[in-house]
């Protein structure tokens, strides 16, 4: 494989032909923010967080789908890029419902982390607050459309890693939704193998393992009885 040399943020970098700018940057220890990229599955260039500037090109290029070329001069940080990234995040927070305090992913969310790291400390755009459904029909998993950012990572792992093809996108524009099969409730899907790959792939709190959301905690009161018996009656076995 031929090697290409390029400059990323004034740093000389070499990468194999066919590597993306994102890959080359990461190998060189330069981080570029991403949301729809997931190692191991093909890229779609949808979230636009990874846009970078290329000397001599008036257009911004997505680092995740642009291949390295000899002599490229890439900039991953500029006031303009930072502003765009913050606005994209603001658009996402305004689009659906991201009240982190009441979210299964609070503290473990790529979107939340990204907002912190990009300095998006408030949202200036009108909240759309659509009332979207929460699909709890599956025995093991749940989907909360209110938290989905339509990155399609779940769709791609479902089709191309698991090979089940359960997850799909329906509708267009702001009405686009992740669906199971041909828009059946997830629990009725005949193709879902319950592998849970989509849960692992999801960057937000949209897909989750059941039994983890607020209000789902069920207490086993017989345990308390055991404690009382143990202390007061010195009875150690149930």
């Amino acid at each position: 494989m031929a090697v290409r040399t390029l400059t990323i943020d004034s740093k000389q970098v070499s990468a194999e032909e066919g590597t993306t700018i994102l890959g080359a940057a990461r190998d060189a220890g330069i981080s570029i923010p991403t949301l729809c990229h997931l190692d191991g599955i093909y890229d779609v260039g949808a979230c636009r967080m990874c846009l970078v500037e290329l000397a001599g090109s008036p257009r911004l290029l997505p680092a995740c789908t642009t291949m390295v070329a000899e002599g490229m001069d890439v900039r991953t940080q500029s006031d303009r890029l930072r502003r765009y990234r913050r606005m994209i995040l603001e658009l996402l927070f305004a689009e659906r419902n991201h009240v982190c305090a009441a979210c299964v992913s609070n503290g473990h969310c790529e979107l939340q982390t990204m907002a912190y790291s990009q300095g998006m400390d408030h949202v200036r755009f009108a909240y759309q607050s659509p009332l979207l459904e929460v699909d709890l029909t599956h025995a093991s998993f749940g989907m909360d459309h209110n938290r989905c950012i339509l990155c399609t990572r779940c769709v791609r792992v479902c089709w191309h890693i698991e090979g089940a093809g359960t997850k799909n996108v329906s509708g267009r524009g702001t009405h686009a939704r992740i669906i199971s099969d041909l828009n059946q409730p997830w629990g009725m899907s005949e193709t879902c193998s319950a592998c849970g790959k989509c849960i692992q792939a999801c960057p937000t709190g949209a897909l989750f393992r059941r039994g983890m959301t607020a209000g789902e905690m069920e207490r086993d009161r017989t345990r308390l009885e055991f404690l009382v018996n143990a202390r007061e009656k010195k009875q150690w076995n149930v």
Binding site: R48, I88, L91, L92, I149, L150, G171, T174, A176
Partner: peptide, 9 residues
């Protein structure tokens, strides 16, 4: 189409 965020939202 709803694929990318700037256009969709």
């Amino acid at each position: 189409c709803g694929k990318c965020i700037p256009c969709r939202a």
